[in-house]
Design a binder for these strands. Structure first.
Length: 303
DNA sequence: GGTATTTGACCATC
DNA sequence: GATGGTCAAATACC
């Protein structure tokens, strides 16, 4: 796989963010207008009607962008394959033979060999390779046409709990501070669920997730009420009830879908310049308005 | 001494 | 034969 720049991963994603920001700004303006006295005869001013059209347009555009199937978008390609893929047995040979059957008739060139993306495969681009799980490195390879080697990790709990989750981590060639992380399989091991906001200024939006008595990610989806603690400042921890009281949507979504959050936060970093000029930011640097909006939006959209 | 990482070798795939 | 993924012995670290 060649090296990917985040902005090349999906130009539509960037546009999606811009459309969502426009929609949010429009809604805010509309709210301000609606708080003012209505015009003669009790009718809303023409500017309010124009804003409604603008907002509807933004959200329509956003929805169509979410249907992105761009050939240049690796994320979309992987997700598309995930949607059509069937659960794999974990047998690499059978997986690869399955991929061959879907491949175009044109034989791929050498160096284009890729591990099959199954229903348990997804990719992220993040400023850190930390994701709250314990991984053990088992290999590293120089990859053709890639500046940085690819590192191979498997779950630390594979020997004792048989957890088959693995991941591959590779620095992006043109953005060495970003990591392309490809996950294979879900964790079936048990560990502790904790969400902490890193205080490292280099990665101010990172959330760490550790599950507590969770038997699988599937269970995690079905029971979004696992104990969660959220560190909003260094060495200061908030209880789940405190946090969920302040940010109920964030807490629920974090419990329900940690992977989505990593995606979301990476996306947020990409668009920080756009967001920061239009939204409020909490004391620890995490833009809760933005997160809440994204959560509201994303929870209605299943990949 | 136990655990994690490194790295060359092996194997499957193309 | 080239490439990517994994294994496993050697090494490093705590």
């Amino acid at each position: 796989m060649g090296t990917l720049r985040p902005e090349k991963l999906c130009a539509n994603r960037k546009r999606l963010m811009e459309e969502l920001v426009m929609g949010r700004d429009g809604a805010a303006q509309l709210r301000d207008l609606l708080e003012k006295p209505t015009g003669p005869g009790g009718s809303w001013p023409a500017s309010a009607k124009g804003l409604v059209v603008k907002i509807l347009g933004s959200f329509s555009a956003s929805l169509s962008l979410l249907k992105c199937t761009s050939e240049t978008c690796e994320v979309c390609k992987i997700r598309a394959s995930v949607r059509v893929g069937s659960p794999s047995s974990g047998d690499r040979r059978s997986e690869d033979s399955g991929e061959s059957s879907k491949r175009p008739a044109v034989k791929e060139r050498r160096g284009c060999y890729k591990r099959r993306k199954t229903s348990d495969t997804w990719m992220k681009i993040l400023p850190t390779m930390e994701d709250g799980h314990a991984w053990r490195k088992y290999g590293q390879k120089e990859i053709l046409n890639a500046k940085f080697p690819r590192c191979y990790f498997r779950c630390t709990h594979k020997p004792d709990q048989g957890c088959l989750a693995t991941k591959q981590v590779q620095k992006l060639q043109e953005e060495p501070h970003m990591y392309q992380i490809t996950y294979f399989g879900h964790h079936t091991c048990t560990n502790t669920l904790k969400i902490s906001l890193e205080c490292d200024p280099i990665k101010p939006y990172l959330l760490n997730f550790e599950s507590n008595n969770i038997t699988s990610d599937q269970d995690h989806h079905h029971h979004p009420s696992y104990p969660i603690s959220v560190k909003t400042e260094c060495n200061k921890e908030e209880t789940e009830s405190n946090f969920s009281g302040k940010f109920p949507v964030v807490a629920a979504a974090a419990a329900a879908e940690p992977n989505m959050w990593a995606d979301l936060l990476a996306m947020r970093s990409d668009h920080e310049d756009v967001i920061s000029s239009t939204t409020t930011t909490s004391s620890h640097g995490l833009d809760m308005d933005f997160l809440n909006e994204c959560v509201d939006f994303e929870t209605d959209f299943s990949w």
